[in-house]
Design a protein around this nucleic acid. Structure first.
Lengths: 220, 220
DNA sequence: GTCTATAATAAGATAGAC
DNA sequence: GTCTATCTTATTATAGAC
């Protein structure tokens, strides 16, 4: 690259438009989330992502090298959002049934509010988890729930209110199943059985139901 | 291209290859299932579908007109497979808890055996149920479960073994959630928590667990 | 770091012979 | 009904100026 050093030192600044790498990067990432969630990895168009940004397509390749790498970063970002909130639950400080209720409601609300997360996970499963395996960080960040839930189950069993021998992963899976399904399948289930999952009364009803199902499941 | 019409009238038959419309159509449909399930609607390539068939790409357009129409037929076929088996359960002829157990185990086994069905439903939800709405048949064929389950719940409540006021759709959703999730999310959940969902011992464990969860949920 | 223009290729759909 | 060859457009990715 040749340097044009014969610029008048007194006139306009060297840069007319302010460069802001971090902001540009974040801007692209947000646009990518929207596009990947709506279209899936294969259906997403780099042009469409560019149109959603304040910058150009060239910058996408400049920062992320390829559509696939951009997708992996989106995956990591959306998985990462759960960890933050999850670690602040303090389940074991509560009475066991209260702790369980809080965990279930927390998981329910998180899925309900983060349709993006649910969609990207669905898409990732269509691709057989190919990209999640490329991310070393995602796996480690998800162990927190199991540790907390295990402590809760032990405490409940010790005090005799929960039954013995429950496995944290099983309970976690029961909770996740329901919370995930009512978001992931809202369109097909909603269409077939004519239910509107975005309706607030329906939402409250489901929330109450899944708490009850889990209470009955762990009860001694 | 010039036409060589000077072919001896007595020699080879007009058709060297036997035409078999129904078989060709079915052949294409099966290839399409494989491709759509593996790649999603957007990721699926018509060329790839053609390669999986014993026929050519031209025939795909001849029989199905477009990639989208072919996709809708795949959707209808996979949804249709459940109905057949579902209608032969005769739940109400059994003792209530036995009927419930049979329904849960049936749903579990169906999802476990039909990963294709689960994948296509996931894909359809990414597209916000856009194509399932185009099919008039799918909605009607799914009402059977609810009718049967409703009768079962009433019978159980009448004899006092089930609690009162349970809604068929809620119970159906609880069952479906778990059975669906462990297939739909086997790759991400499996990777994060290092579980192999195809392992037979794991499978049996989950099957027993979901039956137990439902028994506890409906118990009076 | 950022932009516009463009190369290279992949993919849905069709023409036309037999 | 079936085949091969091809048209047309869309899409990922890059070149090169500033």
């Amino acid at each position: 690259m040749t340097i044009t050093s014969d610029v008048p030192a007194t006139s306009a600044p060297r840069r007319t438009r302010k460069n802001n790498p971090e902001k540009t990067r974040e801007n692209i990432l947000q646009a990518a989330i929207t596009e990947f969630v709506a279209q899936g990895l294969a259906g997403a168009r780099v042009d469409a992502i560019a149109e959603r940004t304040q910058t150009s397509k060239r910058m996408i390749y400049y920062y992320f090298n390829s559509k696939e790498q951009l997708y992996v970063e989106v995956l990591e970002k959306l998985y990462g959002d759960i960890r933050h909130t999850e670690s602040s639950m303090h389940l074991t400080e509560l009475e066991p049934f209260e702790g369980l209720k809080r965990l279930v409601e927390f998981t329910f609300d998180h899925h309900d509010r983060n349709v993006d997360f649910v969609r990207i996970v669905c898409n990732e499963n269509i691709h057989q988890g190919e990209y999640i395996k490329q991310s070393r960080s995602i796996r480690s960040m998800n162990q927190t729930v199991l540790v907390q839930l295990e402590a809760l189950l032990e405490k409940g069993a010790a005090s005799g209110v929960f039954r013995q021998g429950l496995k944290a992963m099983d309970v976690h899976m029961l909770i996740s199943s329901f919370c995930f399904y009512r978001v992931s399948n809202k369109h097909t289930f909603g269409e077939i059985f004519q239910v509107n999952f975005d309706d607030q009364a329906t939402r409250q009803h489901h929330r109450k139901m899944i708490v009850e199902a889990l209470e009955r499941f762990v009860k001694a």
